[in-house]
Amino acid sequence: MKKISLRHMAKNQHGTITAVKVAGDLGRRIRDMGLIKGTEITIQGRAPLNDPVALRIRGNTLTLRNNEADYIEVEVDE
């Protein structure tokens, strides 16, 4: 097990969020959309220009920019 930022996850990689390290509007928005500690996510894919990233969360799809994914720390299998 190791912790990486969501930005560095590969397509189809699976992991569990361990921390969302941002306050303010961005933090609030991220949490409102269900990205909180303990949530399991899978990278679904990336936009044609590699950014934003789309991810599966509880059977649904969310998308966020790479520089927003930076604040989300995920625990992934090696």
Binding site: D25, L26, R29, I30, M33, L35, P52, A54, N60, T61, L62, T63, L64, R65, E68
Partner: peptide, 10 residues
């Protein structure tokens, strides 16, 4: 810039 985070609805 502003947060982008959004849903891709089915």
């Amino acid at each position: 810039p502003t947060p982008f985070v959004m849903e891709l609805p089915p």
